[in-house]
Design a protein around this nucleic acid. Structure first.
Length: 521
RNA sequence: GGGCCGGUAGCUCAGUGGUAGAGCAUCUCCCUUUUAAGGAGAGGGUCGGAGGUUCGAGACCUCCCCGGCUCACCA
C-alpha cells in the first residue's frame, strides 16, 4: 500500500461518508439522453420568457466528469465535461433536497455524475442546466490537476496553472486528455485523417488487408528490427519494419489494389520525428507506375487536409504549407545541381567525394564504396533543408534500394553495360515526398524482374556482411513470389504520424501518439 | 551516445550557503445565480536518488535516475 497524501485521504474519507449515507458510489448505469454541445445549442439564440418557462417542462439528463466546483452554501455551480464539451450545472438544496445536497458536498473535481434538470440561462448569461436531481456515477480517489480558465476583457481565454509537465502528460495521457482541451482535439483529427485516407483509397478500389506483424524474416526497408522469440516453435521472430513484401505477395496473388495501415517497428533512436513504433499506410496498385503513385499520393494528402481544415493550406509551427496539387517534382540529381551547382552525372565518384570533402559536407565514409550512395548522401546533406513545400524528389540511385525498377529509358543492353562500370549510376523509378524538410513517404515502380530482384537482394546480404548495418536479410519466399510473376506494379508508403503532425501543428511525434514510448520508471 | 537545460507540496512555480515558500487544490467555518466566486482560519515536503565539501547544503562537487531541447544515429 502506497503512502497516501492528504488529498487522497480526504477523498477516501468522503467515499466512506457516501457509503454511510447508503449510496453506492459506483452504480452500474445511467440513462443519458443528451450532451453538453446539444444543450448549448438550445439557447443559442436569445429566448423569450415563455420559451424559457417551457424549458422547465423538458427534463434532460447528461453525464460527465466534474471539472470545476463553486460552492455558495446551500447552492452551487459546477461544470461537467462530457464527450462533447463543458456545461454548467446549478445545484440548489431547495431543488434536489437536503439528502442529495449532503451528497453533493462530498463530491470533488474529477468525480463523474449524471444530472437530470432543465436548461436555463444564468444572470450572467451562461447557458446551464438547473438540476432537479443528480446521481453519483463514479467517486474518484486521485486528485486531478486543477486547471482554471478565465475569459479576460478582450474575450480571450486565459488558462491558469495548465497541466504542462510533458513527462507526466505522456506517462498519464488519460489525465492529459481530461484537463488539456486541445489534446483530445488532436487525436480526433488524427482519426479523421486516417478515415480520410481510407476513403480516398476506397474510392479508387483499393482493398484493405492485414499482414503479419511477427515475421521470421524482416524486410521492405533498411532498418534495425526488434527481435523476439516464439516459445512453442522455438524460433526467433522479428516485429515488422515494413509490410511491403507481404503486400507485393498479395499483388502476385491477384489482389490488384491493396492497402494496409500498419504499425512498423524500428529499433532506432527517438526524437521529435521518430518513435520506435509508428504508423504507415502502404498501398499497391497493379499495372501502374510511380507517376500514378505521385498523382494518388498528392490527392490522398490534399484531401486529408481539406477534410480537416476545409482548405489546402496549413500553418505548421509558423510556416505556411500548401498541399494544393500538383506538387513540385524534381529529380534528385537536378536538386543537387540547383543547390550545389554541380552536375554529378558528369563527375566521377572521386570528384564528388572531393567536392564533399572540400565543402565540409557531412558524410559517412562507409558509403564511399558506391557512387550512387555518395550521390544520395550528398542530396540528403545539402538539399533536404530546401524542401519545405510539398515536393516529390524522384529518380534515386539504384544502390539506395533493392526493390525498385530502373528507369524505363535504359535499354536492356545499356543496363547490362552500366552494371559492369562502377562509375555508371543506374537510377530507379522511385520518389520520396518531402514536406517541411521531412520524408513523408516512399514510392517505387516496383521491381518485378525476378533475376534482377535476386541479384539486388543478394547484394544487400553481402553489404550487410560488409558492415552496413541496415540491409536486408534474404527472403527466399518473396523472391519465389516475384518468380511466380508480379504484374507491373507501383507501391507507396505514407508516414501517417508525420502527416498528422503537419495537419495538427504538432511539434513532436509524441503529441500525435496517444501513448509514446517512455522509459519505464 | 555528446552538449545544454530542468526535476522543490496533488498542480503551477519562487527560493545564489544560514528556521523550506506562494497561488490554486485539501481540511474547518460562513455564504441559495456563481464563473480564476468570495470571506475567516488550519494542515500538507525523503527539495529525483546516493555519496562528498562545509559549523551549516534545496543551493556547491561527484556519480546515478527521469525528462526536455539539440547534435549524432535513423534512406
Amino acid at each position: 500500500m502506497q503512502e497516501l497524501n492528504d488529498l487522497v485521504k480526504a477523498r477516501i474519507n468522503a467515499l466512506e461518508e457516501i457509503k454511510k449515507l447508503g449510496i453506492n458510489p459506483y452504480p452500474h448505469r445511467f440513462d443519458v439522453n443528451t450532451d453538453s454541445a446539444a444543450v448549448l445549442a438550445v439557447f443559442k439564440d436569445p429566448q423569450t420568457e415563455e420559451e424559457t418557462e417551457l424549458q422547465k417542462q423538458n427534463i434532460i439528463s447528461v453525464a460527465g466528469r466534474i471539472a470545476a466546483i463553486r460552492k455558495m452554501g446551500k447552492a452551487s455551480f459546477i461544470h461537467i465535461k462530457d464527450g462533447t464539451g463543458k456545461i454548467q450545472i446549478y445545484i440548489r438544496q431547495n431543488d434536489v433536497g437536503e439528502d442529495l445536497y449532503k451528497l453533493f458536498k462530498l463530491l470533488d473535481i474529477g468525480d463523474i455524475i449524471g444530472v437530470n434538470g432543465y436548461v436555463f440561462r444564468t444572470k450572467m448569461g451562461e447557458v446551464s442546466i438547473h438540476a432537479v436531481s443528480f446521481v453519483l456515477l463514479t467517486k474518484t480517489i486521485q486528485p486531478l490537476p486543477v486547471v482554471k480558465e478565465e475569459i479576460n476583457e478582450a474575450g480571450e481565454k486565459i488558462v491558469h496553472d495548465a497541466f504542462a509537465d510533458v513527462e507526466l502528460r505522456y506517462r498519464q495521457r488519460y489525465i492529459d486528455l481530461i484537463v488539456n482541451e486541445n489534446v483530445k482535439d488532436t487525436f480526433i483529427k488524427r482519426t479523421k485523417i486516417i478515415q480520410s485516407i481510407r476513403r480516398t483509397l476506397e474510392k479508387y478500389g483499393f482493398f484493405e488487408v492485414e499482414t503479419p506483424t511477427l515475421q521470421s524474416i524482416y524486410g521492405g526497408a533498411n532498418a534495425k528490427p526488434f527481435a523476439t522469440h516464439h516459445n512453442a516453435l522455438n524460433i526467433p521472430l522479428y516485429l515488422r519494419i515494413s509490410n511491403e513484401l507481404y503486400l507485393k505477395r498479395l499483388i502476385v496473388g491477384g489482389f490488384n489494389r491493396v492497402y494496409e495501415f500498419v504499425k512498423d517497428f524500428r529499433n532506432e533512436g527517438i526524437d521529435r520525428t521518430h518513435n520506435p513504433e509508428f504508423t504507415q499506410v502502404e498501398w499497391y496498385q497493379a499495372y501502374g507506375d510511380y507517376f500514378d503513385s505521385m498523382d494518388l499520393y498528392e490527392e490522398v494528402v490534399e484531401q486529408a487536409c481539406m477534410d480537416i481544415h476545409g482548405t489546402t493550406k496549413v500553418n505548421y509551427q509558423g510556416v505556411e504549407i500548401d498541399f494544393k496539387r500538383p506538387w513540385k517534382r524534381l529529380k534528385m540529381t537536378d536538386a543537387i545541381k540547383e543547390k550545389c551547382g554541380i552536375d554529378v552525372l558528369n563527375m566521377t565518384k572521386a570528384d564528388i567525394l572531393k567536392y564533399i570533402g572540400d565543402n565540409n559536407i557531412e558524410f559517412d565514409p562507409k558509403l564511399a564504396h558506391s557512387k550512387g550512395l555518395v550521390i544520395a548522401a550528398l542530396f540528403e546533406a545539402t538539399c533536404e533543408d530546401e524542401l519545405v513545400q510539398p515536393a516529390f524528389v524522384m529518380e534515386h540511385p539504384l544502390d539506395t534500394t533493392p526493390l525498385c525498377k530502373p528507369l524505363r529509358e535504359y535499354s536492356m543492353q545499356q543496363l547490362e553495360e552500366m552494371k559492369k562500370d562502377p562509375e555508371q549510376v543506374v537510377f530507379v523509378e522511385r520518389f520520396e515526398p518531402y514536406v517541411n524538410k521531412w520524408e513523408l513517404g516512399n514510392s517505387y515502380t516496383e521491381l518485378n524482374d525476378p533475376i534482377l530482384q535476386r541479384t539486388l537482394l543478394e547484394q544487400q546480404v553481402e553489404r550487410g556482411r560488409g558492415g552496413e548495418e541496415e540491409t536486408h536479410p534474404l527472403d527466399e519466399d518473396f523472391i519465389n513470389a516475384i518468380e511466380v510473376g508480379m504484374p507491373p506494379t507501383t507501391g507507396v508508403g505514407l508516414g501517417v504520424d508525420r502527416l498528422v503532425m503537419l495537419l495538427t501543428d504538432s511539434a513532436t511525434i509524441r503529441d500525435v501518439l496517444l501513448f509514446p514510448l517512455m522509459r519505464p520508471l
